[in-house]
Simulated assay, not measured.
Amino acid sequence: MYKAKAYSAASATAPFAADTIPRRETTERDVQIEILFCGICHSDLHTVRDEWSSVMPTTYPCVPGHEIVGKVTKVGSAATNFKPGDLVGVGCMVDSDHSCPHCHDGLEQFCNNATFTYNSADKHGTAPVTYGGYSESIVVDESFVLRVPANLHLAGVAPLLCAGITTYSPIRRWGDLAGKKVGVVGLGGLGHMGVKFARAFGAQVVVFTTSPSKREDALRLGAHEVIVSTNDEEMKQHAGTFNFILDTIAADHDINAYINMLGRDGNITLVGAPESPLQLSAFALLFGRKSISGSLIGGIAETQEMLDFCGEHNITSDVEIIPIQKINEAYERLVKSDVKYRFSIDMSSLKSE
């Protein structure tokens, strides 16, 4: 075991502060990674503030971060896929049981024994729970380490490990969207990635937003058209014309308004998670044989596919790079949606601590 510099929160109301955390020594299947950048996900904020206590109570001290990009510094004797110096990424999971049907199907995110990157039981016993990427280094089973294309901007790659795969997976799974009409509800950290992926797959991309001020940015990101969802006339003009809609909104909203936008056999997939149950009109689904579904990140193979796709199409997240010392300010800004479109922490700033 060795000690690594990190930033942690001591309680749900405590600010982040410099800390040192234990990391296990590299076992035979492990890869040790020097963390270069770590994205800030809204899940980090929910976890740190124990806002999901009824489902996933937080153990403190908490070191979040599951959008990790770094450089391999050491590999175990049986780890053959990586070598020191490789650019790699780590997402929301660092291990699973490797044996259940979900793992065999490449859907490790649904494994009942998955080990998440932070605030998950640490089966190695190094600490009470796993610690995430707000740290100078991490040790991960090589099966959960991903190759990062060398041509991409590394700070912008970090959010791909969560926001990227969260939006890529349902878009990819829905089938050939070339020439199809695809809607993206919301233009935030998830929504802006949904726009980029849908455009890269050749879809006719339309952004739904409540903010007319976001029109210009949506078009810059790749949307062909923008609908202000509070404008009844704009909504009526497009009713029944969409093949697929990606709903990224995590706040309470009227899902039926978007179901009405779908054409026959259209689907709306939720990747946002509102706190309260959504009111759903059965008739909105019945007339048109429409469907509603949900999607949770992606398996390791699909996440690697996503990164390779990003390398081929030069896709990264739009980020604001910050030093770790500004993490508390960044969280306050995140609550206000005051970022375009993700924060990415330059972890070299931790060296000064």
Results as ranks from 00 to 15, higher is better:
H192G: 01
C162H: 08
N151K: 13
V195G: 05
V195M: 05
G183E: 01
F116D: 00
A223M: 06
G125W: 14
L219S: 07
R220Y: 09
Y118N: 04
V145W: 00
L190M: 04
S135R: 03
Y131D: 07
Y131R: 14
F110Q: 03
L161T: 09
L190N: 01
V207H: 09
G132S: 12
A218G: 08
V226A: 04
A178H: 12
A127Q: 02
I227K: 08
N112D: 15
E216P: 01
A127T: 01
V139Q: 03
L219I: 12
C162P: 02
I245Q: 02
V206C: 05
L161Q: 11
G133K: 08
P159S: 08
L161S: 07
R172D: 12
P159A: 04
A198C: 10
A239E: 14
K180D: 05
N113G: 02
T167H: 06
S135C: 08
A203R: 05
L219F: 06
A218E: 06
V157N: 09
R172K: 15
T126L: 07
K180I: 11
I165D: 00
R220S: 13
T166N: 03
D217W: 13
Y168I: 01
G240I: 04
T130I: 10
G175N: 08
G202V: 14
Y131K: 13
L152W: 10
P128K: 03
R173C: 11
Y134L: 11
V206T: 13
F208E: 05
S211Q: 10
V139L: 07
Y134H: 12
T130F: 13
V182M: 11
V206D: 01
V184G: 08
G222P: 05
I165Q: 01
T209F: 00
A178T: 13
H192L: 03
N112F: 13
E225L: 14
V182E: 06
I245D: 00
E108C: 08
F144N: 02
E142K: 13
V148D: 02
V205Q: 01
G189N: 09
H224Y: 09
V139T: 13
V226F: 03
V184N: 07
G133M: 07
H238Q: 14
D141F: 06
V140W: 10
H153S: 14
L146C: 11
D122G: 09
A114N: 08
G132N: 10
R220L: 12
L160Y: 08
T210Q: 14
S229R: 03
E225N: 15
F110A: 06
K214E: 05
L154T: 07
V148M: 03
A223Y: 04
F110I: 03
